[in-house]
Design a protein around this nucleic acid. Structure first.
Length: 552
RNA sequence: GGCCCGUUGGUGAAGUGGUUGAACACACAUGCCUUUCACGCAUGCAUUCAUGGGUUCAAAUCCCGUACGGGUCACCA
């Protein structure tokens, strides 16, 4: 006959330390009053999800503003779903988005912080210690029931319209005698460890969630698996143990977890742990066929944070968006002074929306446009350059070679109170500036976007007259435009729009039409930033050679 | 099906019983400015807060029912 201690050791063998050891190893944190401890805990099961970033940003902000601690923990207890490089991708994403954590893995083998390991698969001994403690106290038991049997039970319950699950009279293994268990284990039968739930479904528990407010739910009476057949814990158990030992004060997580709150509370109680505060965050939604659903890794490319990097949307824009989703009053706070550090905004749980917001790429693009417009030409250039290095190699080479021209081009109508807002991402740049580079300047005549004036003789006349009689590199913009007007008058076009609108029949056309001819001849496009600036960047020689195509 | 959570314009939302004639931002539309585009400026865009009932002198705000949407009921997180 075994003692309960020996029994626990028999069921969960090779555990080096006991519960007391770990309790002592991870003492209470010495933090300031009001400091909160949070963690983001993604699973390495694929690309990094937008929601993970959202939560990371949120937790980081909350921890920073309370002088608390923000941790990154990797929840890799599902070996079947784990993907190669999953952990590295998470680390990389946090690094790229510049969301820094105080504790957590910094590579697959290294980590920082005194409450680790921060990768769950490395915490097996810890979970084992606590499972054994529960078994000793007869609060957990081995269960031999197979998946097929469980499936049958489920079916039975469905037919009899009973509540589904392994609980109460259905939880037959909870009554197994020690002798029988030992016998079956020795016969090599597979088993898991289940919680011996003391709950009663007819009893209600009332809980206060930081986001959802008061929540009332039935007590948990299901004997959930806490240790799986592979020796790793389930999420429920790992969460309770880890957040207890890491002294997490506030659990932020997606609201899909709300319904398992009763289990988690129960586990805390059974283990004698203090219950942390919970904040169940609404997921980011997506609309499809008039229906809303959670944004999904599989169906929605924009759920992958890498997509924004690839598209060249500044991380600052993404972060602003995330902040707005967290607390909508962020926007007006930030508007007052867009140079301030967004981390200084204090997010509060109270202001978080209880319902899931629809993902809005238009809003992100708008934020991105505004952010890019505020950048100096030099900084914008550097950002585009490093983006191109990774995603558009030929453009990268060109930018490097033609740095000065590129910066001049990016600088048009930049700075000042009302900057241009025509770049929504780094990937927009090439299509807007390519024509300034001689290397790219080889446009077939049919691609020129001449508009109202498209008669070759007339074009030739305008260009020739302009170049020979009016164009002077040294003119400032006002003089330059005066001369364009003079050109118009000489050739029978209205020099200003008002005159033209009053008496359109008196003129061949107007100053806009004439400007368009010059614009198209130099850039091939009828829509460009300020023509004067473009002509200045090119210089007389290049202008002349570009005009030449039409002057033969 | 059981158990939970939610519902204010196309979108994010403000709103916590009475100056709400429902802020603000994005999107959209129109106009102005203008050498094109972009910017900027102006105007418009929910006669009403899913819906039915109730409480109240007064409801988007409080209560109840209904509908719809979402989540969960795994040895996945």
């Amino acid at each position: 006959m075994m003692t309960r201690k020996e029994y626990a050791d028999f069921l969960v063998p090779n555990i080096k330390h006991d519960r007391e050891y770990y309790e002592k190893k991870y003492p209470k944190r010495n933090l300031e009053e009001g400091a909160i401890v949070l963690r983001v805990a993604p699973s390495p099961t694929g690309f990094v999800h937008f929601g993970t970033l959202f939560q990371g940003q949120l937790d980081h902000n909350l921890a920073k503003n309370s002088k608390g601690v923000f941790m990154l923990r990797i929840e890799d207890t599902d070996q079947k779903r784990e993907v190669e490089n999953g952990i590295e991708e998470i680390l990389e994403a946090f690094k790229f988005y510049n969301i820094t954590y105080d504790e957590g893995p910094i590579s697959k083998t290294e980590e920082k912080g005194a409450y680790g390991p921060y990768i769950q698969s490395k915490r097996k001994d810890i979970y084992g210690a606590y499972v054994k403690d529960l078994i000793e106290k007869d609060l957990a038991y081995p269960s031999f029931i197979t998946e097929e049997e469980l499936e049958r039970l489920r079916h039975e319950q469905e037919v009899s319209k009973s509540r589904i699950g392994y609980y109460g009279r259905y939880a037959v293994d909870r009554n197994l005698q020690m002798e029988e268990v030992i016998e079956r284990v020795k016969r090599n039968e597979k088993y898991v460890i289940r919680l011996k739930s003391p709950g009663n479904f007819d009893h209600k528990i009332v809980f206060h969630d930081l986001v959802k407010g008061k929540v009332e739910m039935p007590e948990n009476d299901i004997d959930h698996v806490i240790l799986k057949g592979d020796g790793l814990p389930t999420y429920h158990f790992a969460h309770v143990i880890d957040d207890h030992l890491m002294h997490t004060t506030h659990i932020t997580r997606g609201d899909e977890w709300l319904s398992s709150l009763p289990v988690h509370i129960q586990m805390h109680e059974m283990l004698g742990f203090e219950i942390p505060k919970y904040a169940h965050i609404a997921p980011i939604m997506k609309e499809e066929d008039g229906k809303r659903r959670k944004i999904s890794k599989r169906k929605d490319p924009e759920a992958n944070v890498f997509e924004f990097k690839k598209r060249g949307i500044p991380i600052e824009a993404i972060k602003e968006y995330l902040m707005t989703l967290s607390n909508s009053n962020f926007e007006s706070w930030f508007e007052q002074d867009e140079t301030k550090d967004i981390d200084d905004f204090k997010i509060t749980f109270e202001k978080m929306n209880v319902a899931g917001a629809l993902f809005d790429i238009e809003k992100i693009i708008n934020l991105s446009k505004n952010f890019i417009a505020r950048l100096s030409a030099e900084e914008f250039y550097e950002r585009v350059l490093s983006w191109a290095e990774e995603f558009d190699q030929p453009f990268y080479e060109l930018l490097k070679k033609e740095k000065e021209t590129a910066i001049k081009m990016l600088n048009i109508e930049r700075g000042g109170k009302k900057p241009r807002k025509d770049y929504s991402a780094y990937s927009d740049v090439y299509q807007n500036i390519w024509y300034i580079f001689d290397e790219k300047w080889d446009v077939p005549k049919e691609e020129y976007e001449f508009d109202k004036i498209n008669d070759v003789e007339e074009i030739k006349k305008i260009l020739t007259t302009y170049l020979e009689k009016y164009y002077d590199e040294k003119d400032d913009q006002d003089v330059w435009f005066e001369k364009i007007k003079q050109l118009c008058e000489e050739l029978g076009y209205a020099a200003n729009m008002k005159d033209y609108k009053e008496n359109p029949e008196k003129y061949k056309g107007n100053v806009a039409d004439v400007s368009t001819v010059i614009r198209v001849a130099t850039t091939s496009k009828k829509q460009t930033p300020n023509l004067y600036d473009i002509l200045q960047i090119l210089g007389k020689e290049k202008i002349a050679s570009r005009f030449a195509k039409w002057m033969k």
